[in-house]
Computed example of a mutant assay.
Amino acid sequence: MTDLCVRAAVPDDLDAVLAFWRTAAEGTSISDDRAGVERLVERDPQALILAESAGGLVGTVIAGFDGWRCHLYRLAVHPRWRRQGIGSALLAAAEERFVRLGGRRADAMVLVRNESAHHAWRAAGYAPEERWRRWVKPLTEPLKKPLAD
Protein backbone atom coordinates (compact mmCIF):
# COMPACT_ATOMS: atom_id res chain seq x y z
CA MET A 1 0.00 0.00 0.00
CA THR A 2 1.70 3.19 -1.16
CA ASP A 3 -0.29 5.93 0.59
CA LEU A 4 -0.25 4.38 4.06
CA CYS A 5 0.65 6.77 6.88
CA VAL A 6 1.57 5.24 10.24
CA ARG A 7 1.71 7.67 13.18
CA ALA A 8 1.03 8.09 16.87
CA ALA A 9 -2.47 9.13 17.85
CA VAL A 10 -3.19 12.59 19.24
CA PRO A 11 -6.11 13.56 21.49
CA ASP A 12 -8.17 14.76 18.49
CA ASP A 13 -8.11 11.19 17.10
CA LEU A 14 -9.70 9.46 20.07
CA ASP A 15 -13.38 9.60 19.10
CA ALA A 16 -12.52 8.25 15.64
CA VAL A 17 -10.45 5.46 17.23
CA LEU A 18 -13.30 4.40 19.51
CA ALA A 19 -15.74 4.36 16.58
CA PHE A 20 -13.21 2.43 14.49
CA TRP A 21 -12.83 -0.26 17.15
CA ARG A 22 -16.58 -0.84 17.15
CA THR A 23 -16.30 -1.73 13.45
CA ALA A 24 -12.87 -3.33 13.15
CA ALA A 25 -11.87 -4.80 16.51
CA GLU A 26 -12.99 -8.16 17.79
CA GLY A 27 -14.44 -8.04 21.29
CA THR A 28 -14.45 -5.20 23.78
CA SER A 29 -12.29 -4.12 26.67
CA ILE A 30 -13.12 -2.48 29.96
CA SER A 31 -10.94 0.43 28.79
CA ASP A 32 -12.76 1.00 25.48
CA ASP A 33 -14.10 4.40 26.42
CA ARG A 34 -12.98 7.99 26.02
CA ALA A 35 -11.53 8.23 29.55
CA GLY A 36 -9.53 5.01 29.15
CA VAL A 37 -8.02 5.98 25.80
CA GLU A 38 -7.33 9.53 27.00
CA ARG A 39 -5.35 8.12 29.95
CA LEU A 40 -3.33 5.95 27.61
CA VAL A 41 -2.40 8.83 25.30
CA GLU A 42 -1.69 11.21 28.19
CA ARG A 43 0.56 8.68 29.94
CA ASP A 44 2.34 7.41 26.84
CA PRO A 45 1.74 9.61 23.78
CA GLN A 46 3.48 7.17 21.41
CA ALA A 47 1.64 4.00 22.53
CA LEU A 48 -1.47 4.24 20.33
CA ILE A 49 -0.33 3.84 16.74
CA LEU A 50 -2.67 4.56 13.83
CA ALA A 51 -2.59 3.63 10.15
CA GLU A 52 -4.34 5.97 7.75
CA SER A 53 -5.01 5.71 4.04
CA ALA A 54 -7.04 7.90 1.71
CA GLY A 55 -7.62 10.30 4.59
CA GLY A 56 -9.25 7.71 6.85
CA LEU A 57 -8.36 5.45 9.73
CA VAL A 58 -7.68 1.90 8.52
CA GLY A 59 -5.79 0.31 11.42
CA THR A 60 -4.62 0.59 15.01
CA VAL A 61 -2.33 -1.05 17.51
CA ILE A 62 -1.48 -0.21 21.08
CA ALA A 63 2.23 -0.73 21.79
CA GLY A 64 2.55 -0.37 25.55
CA PHE A 65 5.93 -0.53 27.26
CA ASP A 66 6.14 -0.42 31.03
CA GLY A 67 9.93 -0.43 31.23
CA TRP A 68 9.94 -4.20 31.66
CA ARG A 69 7.66 -5.78 29.08
CA CYS A 70 6.34 -4.90 25.64
CA HIS A 71 2.58 -5.41 25.33
CA LEU A 72 0.49 -5.30 22.15
CA TYR A 73 -3.24 -4.67 22.23
CA ARG A 74 -5.96 -3.64 19.81
CA LEU A 75 -4.28 -4.65 16.57
CA ALA A 76 -7.24 -3.98 14.31
CA VAL A 77 -7.55 -3.40 10.58
CA HIS A 78 -10.78 -2.30 8.96
CA PRO A 79 -12.42 -5.32 7.26
CA ARG A 80 -12.28 -3.64 3.80
CA TRP A 81 -8.54 -3.03 4.13
CA ARG A 82 -7.36 -6.41 5.45
CA ARG A 83 -4.68 -8.49 3.72
CA GLN A 84 -2.95 -5.42 2.30
CA GLY A 85 0.00 -5.21 4.71
CA ILE A 86 -1.54 -2.73 7.15
CA GLY A 87 -1.32 -5.04 10.16
CA SER A 88 2.30 -5.82 9.25
CA ALA A 89 3.11 -2.10 9.00
CA LEU A 90 1.51 -1.44 12.39
CA LEU A 91 3.41 -4.32 14.01
CA ALA A 92 6.68 -3.16 12.45
CA ALA A 93 6.12 0.34 13.91
CA ALA A 94 5.29 -1.16 17.32
CA GLU A 95 8.32 -3.45 17.29
CA GLU A 96 10.63 -0.59 16.23
CA ARG A 97 9.26 1.44 19.13
CA PHE A 98 9.94 -1.39 21.55
CA VAL A 99 13.52 -1.83 20.33
CA ARG A 100 14.19 1.92 20.71
CA LEU A 101 12.88 1.73 24.28
CA GLY A 102 15.07 -1.29 25.13
CA GLY A 103 12.34 -3.93 24.95
CA ARG A 104 13.42 -7.54 24.54
CA ARG A 105 10.24 -9.46 23.81
CA ALA A 106 6.73 -8.48 22.77
CA ASP A 107 3.56 -10.21 23.83
CA ALA A 108 0.10 -9.80 22.36
CA MET A 109 -3.40 -10.09 23.76
CA VAL A 110 -5.32 -12.21 21.24
CA LEU A 111 -8.82 -13.55 21.78
CA VAL A 112 -8.95 -17.33 21.76
CA ARG A 113 -12.06 -17.32 19.55
CA ASN A 114 -10.57 -14.96 16.94
CA GLU A 115 -9.17 -17.58 14.56
CA SER A 116 -8.46 -15.14 11.74
CA ALA A 117 -6.27 -13.11 14.12
CA HIS A 118 -4.32 -16.24 15.04
CA HIS A 119 -3.24 -16.61 11.42
CA ALA A 120 -2.14 -12.97 11.23
CA TRP A 121 -0.15 -13.17 14.47
CA ARG A 122 1.55 -16.41 13.40
CA ALA A 123 2.45 -14.87 10.03
CA ALA A 124 4.10 -12.00 11.93
CA GLY A 125 6.25 -14.45 13.92
CA TYR A 126 4.20 -14.63 17.14
CA ALA A 127 3.11 -17.87 18.81
CA PRO A 128 0.91 -18.70 21.78
CA GLU A 129 2.77 -19.46 24.98
CA GLU A 130 0.69 -22.24 26.48
CA ARG A 131 2.47 -22.44 29.83
CA TRP A 132 1.09 -19.05 30.90
CA ARG A 133 -2.48 -18.02 31.59
CA ARG A 134 -3.63 -14.45 31.99
CA TRP A 135 -5.32 -13.75 35.31
CA VAL A 136 -7.47 -10.64 35.57
CA LYS A 137 -9.34 -8.68 38.19
CA PRO A 138 -11.53 -5.71 37.24
CA LEU A 139 -10.71 -2.69 39.37
CA THR A 140 -14.14 -1.20 39.90
CA GLU A 141 -13.07 1.38 42.48
CA PRO A 142 -10.14 3.77 42.18
CA LEU A 143 -7.24 3.32 44.55
CA LYS A 144 -8.06 4.86 47.90
CA LYS A 145 -4.46 5.87 48.56
CA PRO A 146 -1.93 6.81 45.87
CA LEU A 147 1.02 4.48 45.49
CA ALA A 148 4.29 5.79 46.89
CA ASP A 149 6.92 6.92 44.40
Rank of each mutant, 00 (worst) to 15 (best):
residue 144 K to H: 09
residue 93 A to F: 01
residue 28 T to A: 14
residue 50 L to G: 05
residue 18 L to N: 07
residue 121 W to L: 10
residue 76 A to L: 08
residue 13 D to G: 14
residue 70 C to S: 13
residue 35 A to K: 08
residue 97 R to H: 04
residue 77 V to D: 04
residue 144 K to G: 15
residue 140 T to D: 13
residue 99 V to G: 12
residue 13 D to C: 15
residue 127 A to W: 11
residue 2 T to A: 13
residue 9 A to P: 09
residue 42 E to F: 05
residue 12 D to M: 15
residue 71 H to N: 09
residue 64 G to K: 02
residue 130 E to G: 12
residue 10 V to C: 14
residue 20 F to Y: 11
residue 36 G to L: 08
residue 89 A to P: 03
residue 62 I to Q: 08
residue 86 I to F: 07
residue 123 A to T: 04
residue 16 A to P: 06
residue 102 G to F: 09
residue 139 L to H: 06
residue 11 P to R: 12
residue 14 L to I: 14
residue 99 V to C: 11
residue 9 A to F: 07
residue 82 R to H: 04
residue 24 A to T: 00
residue 71 H to M: 10
residue 54 A to C: 05
residue 12 D to N: 15
residue 62 I to H: 03
residue 93 A to L: 01
residue 29 S to H: 06
residue 39 R to S: 15
residue 20 F to V: 07
residue 45 P to C: 14
residue 147 L to F: 07
residue 120 A to W: 01
residue 12 D to H: 15
residue 68 W to M: 13
residue 146 P to S: 08
residue 34 R to P: 01
residue 30 I to S: 10
residue 96 E to H: 10
residue 123 A to Y: 02
residue 118 H to L: 13
residue 53 S to N: 01
residue 99 V to H: 11
residue 44 D to I: 03
residue 122 R to W: 05
residue 21 W to T: 10
residue 133 R to P: 00
residue 53 S to T: 01
residue 84 Q to A: 12
residue 70 C to F: 06
residue 83 R to K: 13
residue 8 A to D: 13
residue 132 W to C: 15
residue 29 S to N: 02
residue 109 M to L: 15
residue 115 E to S: 14
residue 50 L to Y: 03
residue 20 F to S: 10
residue 41 V to K: 04
residue 21 W to V: 11
